[in-house]
């Protein structure tokens, strides 16, 4: 069995178990879907206030901003579904010494620690977010193209990798600080900054959000879908995501060097 197949098989077993145990609580799932829809519609309604007396803000129309807001909810849904439940458990892993057993297995510890658990209740959030994005595209009246869709998929994949890298960096920090609860809030705050197109912010905030690089999470994927992305971004985005991924992995490995365990 190749490395990737083995990794996928092991994560598959873990995720199946997560689905099996969480679908027992149907009310949680339904209430989460209802809440997600509420917050998404509330965000869309809130954004429409800015466009009551003007057609566009910083070059973005109301429909185009909806594309970004939808993407924000989709990405945040992925974060809540896959990344957050694992980041939240880091404190326990370190405090109770469970991390020892994850590290001693002949398996990529970073993958196991960061992707093992799944919050099934937020399974529909990415779908709801993409539904709002699609609504935004329809409301622009311009539609989209196959090339734009392909660019969008590419940019979205880079955004997901970037968000993953951020979470791994937080996990590395949790190994050192033995406190991941607050770090979960920090990771949410980063993603929250991508709720609106970065062009809406004044400088130097706009420049900072481009460098940090929050703009790669929603603004550039939305621009790709709207067919107005600078083509060089198709190369820059994977480079940025790969750099973030490598830096996060290095931070993770470095944190393990100083790992002291639960009862050393």
């Amino acid at each position: 069995m190749s490395g990737w197949t083995r990794h996928a098989r092991i994560l598959g077993i873990c995720w199946r178990a997560a689905v099996a145990s969480e679908v027992e609580y149907r009310f949680n799932f339904i209430s989460n879907v209802a809440l997600s829809m509420f917050w998404m519609l509330w965000a869309a309604a809130g954004a429409s206030v800015y466009f009551r007396y003007t057609g566009a803000v910083a070059g973005w129309t109301n429909a185009e901003v909806l594309v970004v807001i939808g993407l924000f909810f989709a990405l945040n849904g992925i974060r809540q579904m896959v990344l957050q439940p694992n980041l939240e458990r880091m404190t326990d892993y370190v405090r109770l010494g469970t991390l020892d057993f994850l590290l001693i297995k002949p398996f990529d510890a970073q993958l196991l620690v960061s992707l093992r658990h799944l919050n099934v209740n937020t399974l529909l959030d990415p779908v709801l977010g993409l539904a709002l994005t699609t609504t935004g595209i329809v409301l622009t009246g311009r539609g989209t193209s196959v090339a734009a869709l392909a660019s969008f998929a590419w940019m979205l994949a880079c955004a997901v990798l970037l968000m993953y890298a951020l979470t791994v960096a937080m996990m590395a920090l949790a190994v050192k600080l033995v406190a991941a609860e607050e770090l979960g809030q920090v990771s949410y705050a980063f993603v929250e900054l991508s709720r609106f197109p970065v062009d809406l912010y004044r400088n130097p905030v706009q420049t900072i959000l481009t460098i940090v690089p929050i703009a790669f999470l929603t603004t550039y994927p939305a621009a790709a879908l709207l067919g107005r992305l600078d083509p060089y971004m198709l190369l820059l985005a994977p480079a940025v995501a790969a750099c973030a991924g490598v830096l996060a992995t290095l931070a993770w490995r470095r944190s393990l060097r100083s790992y002291a365990g639960a009862s050393a």
Partner: peptide
């Protein structure tokens, strides 16, 4: 062992991990 799995599944995870 993975805490939230039945023992047989937890063993199966170990089998996959250790190849």
């Amino acid at each position: 062992l993975f805490w939230d799995l039945p023992a047989a599944d937890a063993f199966e995870v170990n089998r996959a991990i250790y190849g």
